[in-house]
Design a protein around this nucleic acid. Structure first.
Lengths: 231, 231
DNA sequence: CGATTGACTCGTACGACGTACGATGCAAAA
DNA sequence: TTTTGCATCGTACGTCGTACGAGTCAATCG
């Protein structure tokens, strides 16, 4: 299970530590910088979705020429990687150095993770196909440490971590995919008429209509942690 | 929780039942048809990935003009929807009408689902952003029925189904994202040197190096089912 | 039988896109 | 003053999805 891509950042004297702290403030105004590009890219992604980010639009918004971007950034993929990691920062549960409530700590981090991704719905679907940035690795490290301290056997640790990862990613991608906005409600309803005959159980429990996503996430996470808890 | 899109298939006298059985055999040769288009699209997707499917390439491979495709298909999104559902068919565990081994049945269906998606790695990342086709709905129906018969309370049924969905989707998308092929191994290894200091626990349990994806999937699924089992 | 229809094919063209390739400007160093 | 490097950007190329309308050909109809 290795991460991928992100080889050799080219030209530009390389930032001090390859991937350093990504964000600062937007500055006064004009001077182009990697930070400003990334921040603006994230805004554009929030506003117009994955397909709404184009190098031309990005340059427009920054008041620069399109090709100027390529001095600070390798290519569009690079912009995605940087914007993605910028959005996944975690300031842990403050200075509760190590509470004995490992379960609460795990739930807190995972719900925060999910919330961060839902605040930027493009991020969830991007994360699994990109290299793991430092911020997401920090979350994984925290998760490992907490579970380990909680008594999960080393042999089960990887499975536990990946199970939680899978659950969170699946839940968030699904949630972000079914976005509220559109008026597909009509089409969906029309489809449901056929459903009652062909998919009676789905219909009975109203699987596709329930919209308590947050509750379902929390409850399912509880079940999963029940299964993962050291016996 | 509603599905989305797939409104009004335009022109073309509409297929008998809107979404009928998608596949037949590739036919002798030339006559363009929705079935042939979808099958060829799936081949192209398997061979060249999501970005490798272009309407021009598709037409080339079919020996037709590009714009001819648009008689049978609304647009490129339509092609994705159709190809996606075509790949997700499930022929259940044969005529074990209803074994009492509900757990085995669930595991079998979910592993088959995952395997189907991994056979076509583009499918996993597409599924959450598209409308739910008939084949995936059938799987959900089967899942509902089995869990319900197993004694899962109606109040927990939705949560159980979505938890399993989330787990399978997360696992499969992640797996499909980290594709084996490339030579990023070098880059990944180089990165791991920094990791030992900054992410000791990850390093210790070799989280990113373990490549027993199948085993991890099965084991984690077991834990999740433990948590979901009616007490 | 000729005219009309409708199912189907496809060439051309348009406006996007990512980005390669120099040509520029401009500060600090020599 | 000249040189050097960072930083900016205009132009141009090849690719994409697809709108538009002109073509083909069999079945239908008067």
């Amino acid at each position: 299970m290795t991460a991928k891509r992100s080889g050799a950042r080219s030209k530009r004297p390389q930032r001090i530590s390859q991937w350093s702290q990504p964000a600062q403030e937007p500055r006064s105004e004009p001077p182009l910088s990697r930070e400003r590009i990334v921040a603006t890219a994230a805004e554009l992604l929030d506003a117009h979705g994955v397909d709404g980010l184009t190098m031309r639009r990005l340059a427009d918004r920054l008041g620069s020429g399109v090709m100027s971007l390529y001095w600070h950034v390798d290519n569009k993929e690079d912009v995605f990687d940087l914007a993605l990691d910028a959005v996944l920062e975690y300031r842990g549960s403050p200075q509760t150095v190590q509470s004995q409530d490992w379960r609460g700590e795990v739930v807190h981090m995972l719900e925060d993770w999910r919330a961060s991704m839902l605040r930027h719905p493009w991020s969830a679907s991007l994360l699994p196909r990109r290299a793991l940035g430092p911020n997401i690795l920090s979350r994984l490290e925290l998760l490992s440490k907490t579970l380990s301290r909680a008594g999960v056997a080393d042999a089960d640790l990887n499975v536990a971590i990946w199970s939680l990862w899978n659950y969170v990613m699946g839940a968030t991608i699904t949630r972000a995919g079914f976005d509220l906005s559109d008026d597909d409600r009509a089409a969906a309803q029309k489809r449901l008429e056929h459903l009652s005959e062909r998919y009676p159980t789905i219909e009975r429990c109203r699987l596709l209509l329930d919209d308590d996503w947050d509750g379902a996430f929390r409850k399912g996470l509880g079940f999963l942690l029940d299964g993962l808890s050291p016996k």
